[in-house]
Simulated scan of single mutants.
Amino acid sequence: MRVAIAGAGAVGRSIAHELLGGGHQVMLIERDRAHFEPGTVEQAEWVHADACELSSLEDAGMQLCDVVIAATGDDKVNLVVSLLAKTEFAVRRVVARVNDPNNEWLFTEAWGVDVAVSTPRMLAAMVEEAVSVGDLVRLMTLRQGQANLVEITLPEDSPLAGQAVEQLSLPKDCALVTILRGGRVIVPQPDDPFEPGDELLFVTSADVEHEIQAALGLS
């Protein structure tokens, strides 16, 4: 897979290292001479250019990329890169970094974004997930907000304890995808019982997210 990364700062270089380790081809696009350091990721193709300029992207061969990652520290730049990648070069998958959570609402299909990754929101979610019991925690938004990955930890007095998975009545457009129990990752089977302390992960539409706690008897 050929991946273009706009922004060769610490984040862009880290992503490049991970992708190269997975056997992918990586092109790093950076306009700031101070961040243009090919020696830091030698296996990547480096392009010194402005990723917001259409001609620069054409010269770099953006049209040959399967995935584009807009990873700069500027949300405006990431939105422009995403829009150009999708509308001008028909890139199949566009991933964009969100630096300011207040701008997250902009990172949608209208701007060419397939997946928006908000580091501040993800870190906050990890903190909530670590300390919240019985409360629903949104971990990630999927497919332009059409679905969310959410987590809830069953408290010690959960009415669900001892009941089988098949007894759980979830709302429409919601699925229990895994149970984390101690060091185990459990793929839920109909006769698996719930236990206090279980971390339940669901994929759900935003419309019914609020109904999950009621289904678990926790509201």
Rank of each mutant, 00 (worst) to 15 (best):
E42Q: 04
D100C: 05
L57N: 00
A34E: 15
V133S: 13
D135F: 00
V95T: 10
S132M: 01
V95M: 12
F89I: 14
A110W: 02
E88Y: 10
H35I: 03
A70H: 10
E45F: 12
M126T: 11
Q63S: 14
L106V: 08
W111A: 15
A124K: 02
V77D: 14
E30H: 07
A125W: 07
T119M: 10
N102E: 10
P101R: 09
H35G: 03
L106W: 12
M62T: 03
G112K: 10
G73R: 12
L106Q: 02
Q43T: 07
R143Y: 08
M140A: 13
V77N: 09
A130Y: 00
G134I: 01
A60P: 07
D32S: 12
A71R: 08
F36L: 14
V98K: 05
K76N: 06
V26Y: 03
D59H: 11
T141L: 04
P120V: 05
T40M: 12
R93L: 01
L139T: 10
M62P: 04
V77R: 08
R121D: 06
L123R: 10
D100N: 14
S82I: 12
D114K: 09
T141M: 03
A85F: 03
T108R: 12
R143M: 06
V117T: 10
V133E: 15
E30D: 06
V77S: 13
V81C: 00
L79E: 04
V137G: 06
F107S: 02
R92N: 00
M27L: 11
C65L: 10
E109N: 05
L64S: 13
P38Y: 11
A90P: 00
I69T: 01
D59C: 01
T40F: 04
M27E: 09
Q43W: 03
A70Y: 11
C65N: 09
V131H: 00
A85E: 10
S132A: 04
V115T: 15
H48I: 00
H24A: 04
V67M: 11
A110N: 02
F107M: 08
T87D: 05
W105Q: 03
P120E: 05
A85I: 02
P38E: 07
G61N: 01
A116F: 08
E129G: 00
T119Q: 08
L142H: 09
R31H: 11
